[in-house]
Amino acid sequence: MKKTATRLADGRELIYYDARDDAARAAVTDARTLPPRPAAGEVRDDPLLGEGVVVASHRQDRTHLPPPEQCPLCPSRPGRPTEIPAADYDVAVFENRFPALSGETGRCEVVCFTDDHDASFAALAPERAALVLAAWTDRTAELSALPGVAQVFCFENRGIEIGVTLAHPHGQIYAYPFVTPRTARMLERAAAHRAETGRNLFEDVVAAERVDGRRVVAEGAHWTAFVPRAARWPYEVQVHPRRRVPDLLALDDAARAEFPALHLDLLRRFDRLFGAGAPPTPYVCAWHQAPVAHPHRDEFGLHLQLFTVRRAPGKLKFLAGSESAMNVFVNDVPPEAAAERLRKAASA
């Protein structure tokens, strides 16, 4: 992998990740005239829950579902400059022009998986998926070292049903100035489990799922993918490494080598869930990593969460009263049935 860093016209950082170590990546200047970068969003504390909420009003002006010929994530062309000045790229990462977090409140980055506007992550070759994994890992290391960053979150939103505003295949990375509520809760549970049993919670969960077997969707020598017993979403999968590690940086070479093919297989299964001719399945794909520094950091277990809001053809799972107001999810699809459908969705 070759990494080349440069700057966009307004000073934001742009990094190219090329698969070949000897790739020739000539510096291409961003000749656009851009407005000043927006002020940082504000992090406010909810006194009743003790959770952070980000207020970022400038995001109201972000680009929203432009036509393909105006996509800001495609390579630049003569007379049509974009966020990527180069004429082509493998993987590109840059600071978000409309960030929820910036400056002292953190950082937001965009990860472009390919320069092909009409592709999807599921359509990538394993080698390209491996390069994306390498970019996620590198950005986790770089962002974790920034002052004030408490947690790094790599994720992909796909589909307008999820709220995606750009169709080009891409994901994002948030560097939070606080530990997110979900992660904090998992760490609390892991600490309590250790105190009660002397064992690690994540290891016990994965072991129990493997023994039960009903919700296991796919396995390799180094990863296990299963539908959680208490899945919140109609179709939800967690992917855990067999050797528990706190974050992407700690994965060994064998786990890194096996992951891309498993990841692509799961994404393709999601696209087969609702039958031939169905529109692409909307999903969220999220890496859960340990915070940069935390008393119970070593108890955390890195895992990937993949879920869709589509519960049946033409039907979505909406977060209504119980979910939105009380954070109590009601799932219409039994996890065992979801796992069975995902197993059957494997390629022939």
Score class of each variant (00 low, 15 high):
184 A>W: 07
336 E>H: 11
145 A>S: 12
235 Y>T: 02
190 A>E: 02
130 A>D: 09
159 G>L: 02
327 N>T: 15
321 G>N: 08
26 A>W: 04
182 R>S: 13
335 P>W: 05
58 H>G: 09
257 A>T: 14
33 T>W: 02
12 R>W: 07
179 V>W: 05
97 R>Q: 10
47 P>D: 01
101 L>A: 13
108 C>Q: 15
300 F>I: 01
50 G>S: 07
108 C>F: 05
23 A>V: 05
77 R>C: 09
245 V>H: 07
239 V>H: 00
43 V>E: 08
57 S>V: 09
23 A>H: 13
148 G>T: 09
65 L>F: 10
187 L>R: 03
22 D>I: 05
332 D>T: 13
311 R>D: 06
336 E>F: 05
201 L>G: 03
274 F>A: 02
155 F>W: 15
295 P>V: 01
103 G>H: 13
62 R>W: 12
285 C>G: 02
257 A>I: 02
287 W>R: 06
297 R>C: 04
235 Y>V: 00
241 P>W: 03
343 R>P: 14
155 F>S: 03
174 Y>W: 12
292 V>R: 13
1 M>P: 14
189 R>T: 08
292 V>Y: 11
163 G>P: 06
336 E>K: 15
121 F>S: 05
239 V>I: 11
248 L>N: 11
264 L>E: 12
150 A>Y: 09
192 A>H: 11
159 G>F: 14
63 T>E: 15
325 A>T: 08
95 E>W: 11
208 A>E: 13
137 T>Q: 15
29 T>E: 13
274 F>E: 15
334 P>A: 01
298 D>M: 00
49 L>T: 11
192 A>V: 05
348 A>P: 14
165 T>C: 12
112 C>Q: 01
290 A>D: 01
172 Q>T: 04
5 A>H: 05
51 E>Y: 12
133 L>M: 12
191 A>S: 10
285 C>P: 04
87 A>C: 09
157 N>P: 06
265 D>M: 00
45 D>F: 02
204 D>A: 09
126 P>L: 01
200 N>M: 02
320 A>I: 01
120 S>I: 04
4 T>L: 09
88 D>Q: 10
270 F>M: 02
83 E>N: 08
326 M>Q: 10
255 A>F: 10
159 G>I: 05
158 R>M: 04
246 P>W: 02
203 E>K: 05
115 D>Q: 03
295 P>M: 01
225 A>N: 00
127 E>I: 06
314 G>W: 01
213 G>Q: 01
19 A>S: 10
61 D>A: 12
334 P>C: 01
237 V>Y: 01
225 A>C: 01
21 D>E: 14
85 P>F: 08
131 L>S: 04
59 R>K: 03
42 E>W: 06
188 E>R: 11
118 D>V: 09
341 R>M: 04
173 I>Q: 05
243 R>K: 08
256 R>I: 14
248 L>Q: 02
2 K>R: 11
294 H>E: 03
300 F>E: 10
89 Y>E: 08
329 F>P: 09
6 T>N: 06
90 D>H: 08
49 L>Y: 06
245 V>E: 08
217 V>D: 00
111 V>W: 02
282 P>H: 06
176 Y>N: 15
64 H>K: 02
336 E>G: 06
233 W>C: 00
191 A>G: 07
77 R>Y: 09
2 K>L: 12
254 A>V: 10
76 S>L: 04
63 T>A: 07
83 E>A: 14
314 G>N: 05
7 R>F: 10
211 V>K: 00
27 A>R: 13
255 A>P: 10
342 L>V: 07
